[in-house]
Design a binder for these strands. Structure first.
Length: 189
DNA sequence: GGAACGATCTGC
DNA sequence: CAGATCGTTCCC
Protein backbone atom coordinates (compact mmCIF):
# COMPACT_ATOMS: atom_id res chain seq x y z
CA UNK A 1 0.00 0.00 0.00
CA UNK A 2 2.79 2.41 0.84
CA UNK A 3 4.52 1.53 -2.40
CA UNK A 4 1.25 2.03 -4.21
CA UNK A 5 0.89 5.57 -2.94
CA UNK A 6 4.38 6.48 -4.01
CA UNK A 7 3.73 5.45 -7.59
CA UNK A 8 0.71 7.69 -7.92
CA UNK A 9 1.99 10.58 -5.87
CA UNK A 10 5.21 10.90 -7.83
CA UNK A 11 3.45 13.13 -10.33
CA UNK A 12 2.83 16.86 -10.11
CA UNK A 13 -0.25 18.13 -8.29
CA UNK A 14 -2.14 18.79 -11.54
CA UNK A 15 -1.40 15.27 -12.78
CA UNK A 16 -2.37 13.70 -9.50
CA UNK A 17 -5.50 15.71 -8.65
CA UNK A 18 -7.81 14.03 -11.22
CA UNK A 19 -6.41 10.59 -10.42
CA UNK A 20 -7.28 10.96 -6.74
CA UNK A 21 -10.97 11.17 -7.60
CA UNK A 22 -12.71 8.00 -6.41
CA UNK A 23 -10.03 7.18 -3.83
CA UNK A 24 -11.01 6.49 -0.24
CA UNK A 25 -10.08 8.42 2.86
CA UNK A 26 -10.35 6.50 6.13
CA UNK A 27 -10.25 8.12 9.55
CA UNK A 28 -10.08 6.24 12.82
CA UNK A 29 -10.96 8.03 16.05
CA UNK A 30 -11.65 6.41 19.41
CA UNK A 31 -12.20 3.01 17.82
CA UNK A 32 -14.69 4.48 15.37
CA UNK A 33 -14.21 4.47 11.63
CA UNK A 34 -15.12 7.12 9.09
CA UNK A 35 -14.82 6.56 5.36
CA UNK A 36 -15.29 9.01 2.52
CA UNK A 37 -14.79 8.87 -1.21
CA UNK A 38 -12.92 11.75 -2.80
CA UNK A 39 -15.20 13.48 -5.30
CA UNK A 40 -13.57 16.93 -5.74
CA UNK A 41 -9.93 18.05 -5.78
CA UNK A 42 -7.82 21.08 -6.67
CA UNK A 43 -4.15 21.16 -7.62
CA UNK A 44 -1.73 23.77 -6.26
CA UNK A 45 1.72 23.96 -7.85
CA UNK A 46 4.99 25.50 -6.82
CA UNK A 47 5.03 28.06 -9.65
CA UNK A 48 1.39 28.93 -9.06
CA UNK A 49 0.40 32.34 -7.73
CA UNK A 50 -2.58 30.81 -5.92
CA UNK A 51 -0.49 28.29 -4.00
CA UNK A 52 0.83 28.74 -0.48
CA UNK A 53 4.13 27.33 -1.77
CA UNK A 54 4.65 29.88 -4.55
CA UNK A 55 6.95 32.12 -2.46
CA UNK A 56 9.12 29.27 -1.35
CA UNK A 57 9.32 27.22 1.80
CA UNK A 58 8.15 28.86 5.04
CA UNK A 59 7.43 27.33 8.44
CA UNK A 60 3.78 27.04 7.49
CA UNK A 61 4.36 25.38 4.09
CA UNK A 62 7.27 23.18 5.08
CA UNK A 63 5.22 19.98 4.71
CA UNK A 64 4.39 20.82 1.09
CA UNK A 65 8.11 20.63 0.28
CA UNK A 66 8.53 17.29 2.00
CA UNK A 67 7.85 13.76 0.75
CA UNK A 68 4.68 12.94 -1.17
CA UNK A 69 1.84 11.14 0.53
CA UNK A 70 1.83 13.34 3.64
CA UNK A 71 -0.99 15.56 4.88
CA UNK A 72 -0.52 19.31 4.44
CA UNK A 73 -3.06 20.94 6.72
CA UNK A 74 -3.51 24.64 7.21
CA UNK A 75 -5.63 26.87 9.42
CA UNK A 76 -7.47 29.72 7.76
CA UNK A 77 -10.03 32.47 8.38
CA UNK A 78 -9.32 32.14 12.07
CA UNK A 79 -11.49 29.04 12.39
CA UNK A 80 -11.19 26.51 9.57
CA UNK A 81 -8.81 23.73 8.61
CA UNK A 82 -8.18 22.48 5.09
CA UNK A 83 -6.58 19.19 4.09
CA UNK A 84 -4.16 18.60 1.20
CA UNK A 85 -2.26 15.58 -0.06
CA UNK A 86 1.37 16.40 -0.78
CA UNK A 87 2.55 15.23 -4.20
CA UNK A 88 5.67 15.53 -6.30
CA UNK A 89 9.35 15.19 -5.55
CA UNK A 90 10.85 16.18 -2.23
CA UNK A 91 11.95 19.79 -2.37
CA UNK A 92 9.20 20.69 -4.83
CA UNK A 93 6.26 22.36 -3.08
CA UNK A 94 2.92 21.24 -4.42
CA UNK A 95 -0.20 19.47 -3.26
CA UNK A 96 -3.80 18.55 -3.89
CA UNK A 97 -6.56 20.20 -1.86
CA UNK A 98 -9.38 17.78 -1.03
CA UNK A 99 -12.53 19.84 -1.51
CA UNK A 100 -15.30 17.28 -1.09
CA UNK A 101 -16.02 13.71 -0.06
CA UNK A 102 -18.96 11.38 -0.41
CA UNK A 103 -19.66 9.92 3.05
CA UNK A 104 -19.55 6.11 2.89
CA UNK A 105 -19.27 5.05 6.51
CA UNK A 106 -19.78 6.70 9.90
CA UNK A 107 -22.03 9.54 8.76
CA UNK A 108 -23.67 9.63 12.22
CA UNK A 109 -20.31 10.60 13.69
CA UNK A 110 -19.73 13.12 10.93
CA UNK A 111 -23.09 14.66 11.79
CA UNK A 112 -22.10 14.90 15.43
CA UNK A 113 -18.75 16.47 14.54
CA UNK A 114 -20.46 18.95 12.26
CA UNK A 115 -23.28 19.77 14.62
CA UNK A 116 -25.85 19.33 11.87
CA UNK A 117 -27.39 16.60 9.74
CA UNK A 118 -26.58 17.86 6.26
CA UNK A 119 -23.69 19.38 4.31
CA UNK A 120 -21.29 17.00 6.02
CA UNK A 121 -18.35 16.90 3.62
CA UNK A 122 -19.14 19.11 0.60
CA UNK A 123 -16.39 21.65 1.20
CA UNK A 124 -12.72 21.62 2.26
CA UNK A 125 -13.30 22.94 5.78
CA UNK A 126 -16.55 21.03 6.25
CA UNK A 127 -14.89 17.68 5.59
CA UNK A 128 -12.09 18.51 8.01
CA UNK A 129 -14.64 19.22 10.71
CA UNK A 130 -16.58 16.04 9.90
CA UNK A 131 -13.39 13.94 9.94
CA UNK A 132 -11.90 15.73 12.94
CA UNK A 133 -8.83 16.78 10.95
CA UNK A 134 -6.72 19.56 12.46
CA UNK A 135 -3.07 20.57 12.86
CA UNK A 136 -2.37 17.49 14.98
CA UNK A 137 -2.32 15.56 11.69
CA UNK A 138 0.00 17.99 9.92
CA UNK A 139 2.71 16.01 8.13
CA UNK A 140 1.00 12.70 8.84
CA UNK A 141 1.90 9.81 6.51
CA UNK A 142 -1.32 8.88 4.72
CA UNK A 143 -0.24 5.25 4.36
CA UNK A 144 -0.82 4.83 8.10
CA UNK A 145 -3.68 5.15 10.58
CA UNK A 146 -5.43 7.15 11.86
CA UNK A 147 -5.86 8.86 8.49
CA UNK A 148 -5.33 6.70 5.43
CA UNK A 149 -5.59 7.14 1.69
CA UNK A 150 -6.57 4.09 -0.35
CA UNK A 151 -6.21 4.65 -4.05
CA UNK A 152 -9.11 3.74 -6.28
CA UNK A 153 -8.81 2.79 -9.90
CA UNK A 154 -8.51 5.68 -12.27
CA UNK A 155 -11.87 7.04 -13.42
CA UNK A 156 -12.55 7.32 -17.16
CA UNK A 157 -12.11 10.84 -18.49
CA UNK A 158 -15.79 11.18 -19.36
CA UNK A 159 -16.66 10.91 -15.66
CA UNK A 160 -14.40 13.83 -14.71
CA UNK A 161 -15.12 17.55 -15.00
CA UNK A 162 -12.12 19.90 -15.19
CA UNK A 163 -12.62 23.58 -14.46
CA UNK A 164 -11.20 26.61 -12.64
CA UNK A 165 -10.54 26.70 -8.91
CA UNK A 166 -12.81 28.19 -6.26
CA UNK A 167 -12.28 30.82 -3.57
CA UNK A 168 -8.98 32.22 -4.82
CA UNK A 169 -8.06 35.66 -6.14
CA UNK A 170 -4.84 34.82 -8.02
CA UNK A 171 -4.39 32.57 -11.06
CA UNK A 172 -8.18 32.33 -11.31
CA UNK A 173 -8.01 31.07 -14.92
CA UNK A 174 -5.89 27.99 -14.22
CA UNK A 175 -8.16 24.93 -14.75
CA UNK A 176 -6.92 22.78 -11.91
CA UNK A 177 -10.18 21.89 -10.22
CA UNK A 178 -11.51 18.40 -10.84
CA UNK A 179 -14.70 16.70 -9.75
CA UNK A 180 -16.77 13.62 -10.48
CA UNK A 181 -19.48 14.42 -12.98
CA UNK A 182 -23.05 14.40 -11.63
CA UNK A 183 -21.92 13.75 -8.06
CA UNK A 184 -24.21 15.42 -5.55
CA UNK A 185 -21.49 15.78 -2.90
CA UNK A 186 -19.35 18.20 -4.92
CA UNK A 187 -19.07 21.58 -3.14
CA UNK A 188 -20.25 23.70 -6.06
CA UNK A 189 -21.44 22.86 -9.55
C1' DG B 1 5.42 46.43 15.91
C1' DG B 2 1.55 46.57 12.90
C1' DA B 3 -1.54 45.82 9.19
C1' DA B 4 -3.63 43.23 5.60
C1' DC B 5 -5.40 39.07 4.07
C1' DG B 6 -7.02 34.75 3.47
C1' DA B 7 -7.33 27.53 -1.00
C1' DT B 8 -14.26 29.15 4.20
C1' DC B 9 -18.70 28.71 6.29
C1' DT B 10 -22.93 30.28 8.25
C1' DG B 11 -26.94 32.80 9.01
C1' DC B 12 -29.53 36.80 7.88
C1' DC C 1 -23.94 39.67 1.59
C1' DA C 2 -21.48 40.53 5.97
C1' DG C 3 -19.43 38.73 10.14
C1' DA C 4 -16.66 35.43 12.58
C1' DT C 5 -11.79 35.17 14.20
C1' DC C 6 -6.61 34.46 14.22
C1' DG C 7 -2.17 32.67 12.11
C1' DT C 8 0.99 33.91 8.47
C1' DT C 9 3.36 37.02 5.82
C1' DC C 10 5.17 41.21 4.59
C1' DC C 11 6.33 45.94 5.27
C1' DC C 12 8.00 49.77 8.16
Amino acid sequence: MTQNLNILLNGTAEETAPRLLGSLLTREIDGQKLVGRIVETEAYGQTDAASHSCRGETPRTRVMFGPAGRAYIYFTYGMHYCFNIVTGAEGYGCGVLIRALEPLEGSEIMQRNRGRGDQLTNGPAKLCQAFNIDMALSGHNLAEPPLQLELGKQLPNEDIVQTTRIGITKAIDVPWRFYIKNNQFVSKL
